[in-house]
Design a protein around this nucleic acid. Structure first.
Lengths: 261, 261
DNA sequence: TCGAATTTGTGCGTATGTATC
DNA sequence: GGATACATACGCACAAATTCG
């Protein structure tokens, strides 16, 4: 039946993608609507819909319900500097970062006690869970710059460390929003170092919605853990869309320890 | 009609995703089939199909036509530590990194003089090019662990710095393969700091072939620049497949080395 | 302000192809 | 070959959002 091996909706999507790559369709241009595609290619509305869905999930287009589907505009790439020097006293690290870009940082959050998932449990060095007993405070963040979402984060802090202290809720109390290093210092814990594991993957539908990006757009994933000596005191997942932000790590060479053994 | 605001297929996908996260469904387990979903949730096959499609495109499951849909197995992810402490004297940084994993590091390279592209030109602070005059040494690398490609890199060094010195070719002469910091030290240049800008994008066909990965797999892209005070002395593009490697940045709040593991 | 037209999003039912077991 | 299951594709309907007269 099919002369070509590739499915119909993919071939149509390819053709539109090629027209975008060629510059025939430019950023912001309107793509053919679903009824248009059914006429142009003699396919059903359902198949035309699959074409749209493919282009959107490949990040080439954005669909606006009730309006149309448009060639995606690529945002200007900004930089997020991840430097520990910046985590100085007072003020939020994120707000500081945004301020250097001349933008206003803000964030929503939602804290609750919970039982840590296995992966987090391992990173924090927690024992086996006992029943349904919560053992961490989990906080979900949406960080914004000038009101636009720029970063998602989920942080876990062991209740074994913070239970009964004034900083048990990261975004509540006198030291709210000042960052982990400063907050831990308030309860006598000196955060000595941190590690960030960086990877990347496509955004899930839910993440795409929260970040207001195309489904399937690529996210940098950072897994950060703070340590007080050998004791992990906080770990977090951080999600950053790569089409808007680069993450910059910088450091000095002359701080290096004596020659390796 | 909908009591809930989220579409039916997303709610079902969420439920399955939650069961995966909770460990109720483990890697390799079979998910409910489409007919099963239609019975369990009273939806049409079309909607059940949308559930599967969502889980697959979110990377949680793999669909095997004729067999079933299974919870995705995550390949074992190795870590590449990008720590400046490790750039100690003697030996190659990459070989050292591989050695800590019990693997043998090796690399192919190809050096030539060239005129730097605009983007590199900017990062190195080079003047406008004069005619066809080459102004950098460009070196392309394929790094391997136990013979398998794990990383691609392209490095540029200004001829204005290295011309006429014994280290003009990075992989030739007495200090070959010892890393930029050590090589520059041989000609009296003290590399003081570095910056790495991290992002990610799908692999091109050529990159996929060189790295022996699927076309379109996601690559971490690192743009690294070494500085001697304010003078850039080398810059490089580094490409790392995310399904095999994570990149770990560690540093200390008090200038201590990062945690052992 | 209202309503009609357009467009995407979701969902139903059905049929066929094709891969796996 | 037969049963099962995913993939593609048709037809239809309605909801929700947007646009525009």
């Amino acid at each position: 039946m099919n002369q070509e091996e590739r499915p119909r909706y993919l071939r149509i999507a390819d053709e539109l993608a090629a027209r975008i790559a060629k510059g025939e369709l430019r950023e912001g241009d309107k793509l053919p609507s679903i009824p248009q595609l059914t006429r142009d290619y003699g396919v059903s509305a359902n198949t035309a819909q699959a074409v749209i869905r493919t282009l959107v999930s490949d990040g080439l287009a954005v669909a606006k319900s009730g309006s149309g589907t448009y060639v995606r505009k690529r945002a200007q790439v900004r930089q997020l500097v991840r430097s520990w020097n910046r985590n100085a006293r007072g003020g939020s690290p994120f707000a500081g970062e945004m301020a250097t870009q001349g933008r206003i940082g803000s964030w929503d959050y939602d804290s609750r006690t919970a039982q840590a998932p296995a992966e987090v449990r391992e990173r924090l060095g927690l024992d086996e869970p006992s029943g349904d007993e919560p053992d961490v405070v989990r906080t979900d963040y949406v960080f914004r710059g000038d009101g636009e979402p720029v970063m998602l984060s989920t942080a876990w802090e062991p209740l074994a460390i913070t239970r009964g202290t004034p900083i048990v809720l990261p975004e509540d109390g006198p030291h709210a929003g000042q960052g982990v290093v400063e907050r831990m210092r308030q309860i006598g814990i000196n955060v000595t170092h941190a590690a960030e594991a960086v990877s990347a993957r496509p955004a899930t539908a839910g993440e795409a919605r929260q970040l207001d990006i195309a489904a399937g757009a690529i996210l940098l994933t950072i897994t950060r853990t703070y340590y007080a000596d050998t004791q992990p005191v906080e770990t977090a997942h951080i999600l950053i869309p790569t089409d808007q932000y680069q993450v910059v790590y910088g450091t000095s060479i002359w701080d290096e320890p004596p020659p390796a053994d």
